[in-house]
């Protein structure tokens, strides 16, 4: 539901990172990293980005999403593991004091400009 706002932020960051000395820049690819725990729906984000990038250097750019797994660390026994389901109890010691190491990412990693 908030994907439009996220798409707008992405567009702003992307446009601001294109060097000024490029005439009529055109972005071919925008690569992002999205954690599995981030509350973002990829299809909605794609749709929103497509709409708001019209008449910008990102018009028609392909969105490439790298999904980041949820990585956890048990603060009690030091065990590290990844989960596909939202179960945050340590499988090694059954402890509940767990730190999320990865999975909340929502980052733009690179842009690919047309030559």
């Amino acid at each position: 539901m908030h994907e439009m706002g996220i798409a707008q932020q992405m567009l702003e960051i992307a446009v601001a990172s294109i060097p000024d000395d490029i005439d009529n820049p055109r972005v071919e690819k925008i690569c992002v990293r999205i954690g599995k725990l981030a509350a973002v729906v990829e299809d909605s984000l794609r749709f929103c980005l497509e709409i708001i990038s019209e008449n910008t250097p990102l018009a028609g750019a392909v969105l490439i999403v790298e999904e980041v797994p949820v990585g956890l660390l048990c603060r009690e026994c030091g065990h590290e593991w990844t989960v596909d389901t939202p179960l945050f109890r340590c499988p090694a010691c059954n402890g509940g004091n767990v730190k999320v190491l990865s999975g909340r990412e929502l980052e733009i990693s690179t842009l690919e400009l047309a030559e």
């Binding site: 996220i6 932020q9 992405m10 960051i13 992307a14 990172s17 294109i18 060097p19 992002v32 929502l106 980052e107 733009i108 990693s109 690179t110 842009l111 690919e112 400009l113 030559e115």
Partner: peptide, 13 residues
């Protein structure tokens, strides 16, 4: 040409 960004999308917030 590739531009390296590595920025959080919600950095402003």
């Amino acid at each position: 040409m590739e531009i390296n960004i590595q920025k959080k999308v919600l950095e402003v917030n």
